[in-house]
Nucleic acid binder design. Structure first.
Length: 314
RNA sequence: CGCGGGGUAGAGCAGUCUGGUAGCUCGUCGGGCUCAUAACCCGGAGGUCAUGUGGUUCAAAUCCCAUCCCCGCAA
């Protein structure tokens, strides 16, 4: 069969795992399409996406079209003339004419076991929902949102205290391997697509600001799941009694048996800030107070910014 | 020039408004108590208060000016 000429579409670190694997597997990558540099951070500094930085360092042509839905991009596509498009966390919907272009179609690496968690934030949502297992699916792209035929899957166990960072990195690596496997099957002519059961589909909505607010009238376990799912980015938050933001990097379901009003600080022992929840209590371990650096709970306690009886999140 | 917080002992902070011999909670070191301890008691070391050999002043962590660095928000 003819050599795969791959056009890679991806943007953040998660995509980098797959792109790097393709490069290291000596795949022919005819180009990389990624989001335009965007003003980020303090002072609106223009920052290139991780994928761009890597691709440029390897001498791969990088394209950053504002949209894929105009003639300009289609002309570019014809000029590059890939016979396969691989998409990993690109961040934009591909129009039909692009989907139809490559002879071998468009393959997507998705961070969930489809049809569960279709959409934008599958990894975070799986953790937030307290899932014990998640995974990667490679799939054939079609017009719908993550609805195409599935090729291969790989599972990943989520540990009780695993956070988004851990799951993200493991799934990234898993996704890269699975992609290579899927490409090998494609070349061998043994790749088989399997339709998704739409009835079982769930959607992983994008994470919004309000999704990140801790509500201590929920169970400690749920709050712990939320904190994990949002750590280290964008981070769950609550507020200190003075109204300042307090972001929570790491927590643990507490074995403390005291009880109190939801949000009440029950204890400050052992380097932990123990907060009452509706059910059980939560130990806050690592935090970022507004305007401050990341610090341990003990550091926050030493600084006297918090005391037993304080009410968080009110 | 997007908005805001901050740089004081190894860590986290107070002190800055109302200039006048640098303090708290920890850690650390030594000693004590204890069957024992991350608990408790006593004692000690450790700071050019980001930088400028800057300005004002009898006197600056504190007021003024400039610069560097860190962080939160927003995007």
């Amino acid at each position: 069969m003819e050599t795969l000429k791959i056009l890679f579409l991806g943007t953040p670190d998660f995509a980098l795992f797959s792109l790097r694997a393709l490069v290291e597997a000596k795949r022919e990558i005819v180009g990389v399409v990624t989001q335009p540099d965007k003003p980020k951070g303090r002072g609106y500094e223009l920052l290139p996406p991780p994928v761009k930085v890597f691709a440029e360092s390897r001498g791969i042509p990088v394209y950053q079209p504002a949209t894929l839905r105009d003639e300009g991009f289609y002309e570019l596509l014809k000029a590059i003339d890939p016979n396969l498009i691989v998409v990993v966390a690109y961040g934009k919907i591909l129009p039909q004419n692009v989907l139809d272009y490559p002879k071998f179609g468009c393959i997507n690496v998705h961070g969930s076991l489809l049809p569960e968690y279709r959409g934008a934030a599958p990894m975070q949502r799986a953790i937030i929902d307290g899932k014990k297992v998640t995974g990667i699916t490679t799939m054939k792209m079609e017009a719908g949102l993550d609805t195409g035929e599935m090729y291969e899957k790989a599972e990943l166990v989520i540990g009780e205290d695993d956070n988004f960072e851990v799951v993200h990195d493991r799934l990234g690596a898993l996704g890269a391997n699975l992609l290579l496997s899927t490409l090998a099957k494609l070349e061998a002519g043994t790749l088989i697509g399997k339709a998704q059961d739409d009835a079982k589909a769930t959607y992983a909505k994008k994470i919004e600001k309000e999704d990140c607010r801790l509500d201590f009238s929920q169970s400690a376990q749920k709050l712990h799941n939320l904190i994990r799912g949002l750590s280290p980015i964008p981070l769950a938050f609550t507020t200190l009694p003075d109204g300042k933001l307090l972001k929570i990097v790491a927590s643990k379901v507490s074995d403390c048996t005291k009880s109190g009003k939801p949000g009440e600080v029950l204890a400050l022992d052992g380097g932990k800030i123990t907060v009452a929840c509706k059910e059980g209590a939560l130990d806050l371990l690592t935090l970022i107070p507004e305007g401050k650096k990341r610090m341990s709970a003990q550091d926050l306690i030493n600084g006297r910014r918090i005391k037993v009886g304080d009410l968080l999140g009110s």
